[in-house]
Simulated assay, not measured.
Amino acid sequence: MDYSVEYRKGGMPLSAFQQKYQDCATYLTYCQQCPNYNTVWSCPPLPFDVADYLEKFQWMYVIGAKINLSPQVIKAADTAEKVKAMGWDIVVAVKLAMEERLRRLEQQLPGSVSFSSGGCNLCRACSRKEGASCRRPEKMRYSLDAFGFNLTAIANDMLGIEIQWCKERLPDYFTLVHGLATTEKISDRMWERWEDAFELAAD
């Protein structure tokens, strides 16, 4: 098998989460340097005020995936092109599966909304580049980093994962950080049921 996925989760009141991890001025400046800026609907600039969007929620939960790559797949990615292509395929496969699980969880938690990790991958090319509306607004979710959240600190503090990056080779693992904002605290029993239903546990 090319990889295994280890899921982790954490949560706190949204106000505390914002105070600790949100810095719009700094992180949205980074977004402006990204090639996806103003070309993907899930990414900045967002078509609404960030504070207004979040004000109806009380809690923020984070769900992380540590995608552990096998030594074989790391060795097989022996060119820059393979590093990029193989890493992308693995990350997107896990990411899309997580997004689908979170959309199902939204249905069990009225008033909740999930957040993805990085730009949307539902379409081959985003309609925003053409100046058109999102083709799949019922499935598209905004990224946590689009709201100015520090994903590196979140992964470290709440999930116990130090993010690694691709350089000349594939890293030992990739990290995805997704979110779920709710109007009420999720009960321990609800989390346990969700873990059972969606296998949100160490593989």
Rank of each mutant, 00 (worst) to 15 (best):
L69K: 03
R124Q: 11
L144E: 06
A132K: 15
D157A: 09
N68Q: 15
V5H: 05
Y27E: 04
I74W: 04
T183D: 02
C31Y: 10
C24Y: 07
A25M: 04
Y173D: 08
R101K: 14
P71D: 07
N121D: 04
T39Y: 10
G160K: 08
N150L: 07
V50Y: 09
G87M: 04
P171K: 05
F147N: 04
D196L: 02
E55I: 04
L102E: 03
I163L: 05
Q33F: 00
S4F: 13
Y37N: 12
D78W: 07
L180D: 08
V62S: 06
A85H: 13
K129V: 13
F48D: 12
A76G: 00
Y37F: 14
I90N: 00
L151A: 10
N68W: 06
G11I: 03
Q108P: 01
A97N: 08
P35D: 09
K66V: 01
D52A: 15
W165K: 03
C120I: 01
P137W: 01
M190N: 03
L200G: 05
Y61Q: 09
Q19A: 13
Y21W: 08
I90D: 02
Y61S: 11
A76R: 08
E168Y: 07
D157M: 09
S133L: 15
T79L: 09
C134W: 05
R135A: 15
Q18P: 00
N121R: 13
L144G: 07
Q22G: 02
L159E: 03
L46D: 11
S4I: 15
S42I: 01
D78P: 10
A65G: 05
D89T: 13
Y7C: 07
L105N: 01
L200F: 11
L28W: 05
K75T: 13
C123A: 12
P171A: 02
W165Y: 14
A93Q: 14
R8M: 06
D203H: 10
D196G: 09
E99L: 08
D145C: 14
E138G: 01
R189H: 13
L105H: 00
F149L: 14
S187V: 01
E81K: 15
K139P: 04
A153V: 02
A146T: 06
A85R: 15
A97L: 06
L200V: 08
N36S: 11
R193N: 14
D89S: 14
E81S: 13
L176T: 02
R124Y: 11
V83F: 09
I67Y: 08
F149H: 04
L200C: 06
K9R: 11
L109C: 10
C43T: 03
L105E: 06
S187D: 11
W88K: 13
P171N: 11
M190P: 03
Q107E: 15
G87D: 06
G111V: 10
A76H: 09
A93C: 03
A85N: 12
D188P: 11
L14Y: 04
K20W: 03
V40W: 05
Y7S: 05
S143P: 02
W59P: 03
R101S: 10
P47C: 14
C166R: 12
S114V: 06
A93I: 00
A132V: 00
P45D: 02
N150F: 12
G118Q: 12
P71I: 00
A77M: 10
R169P: 00
A146N: 01
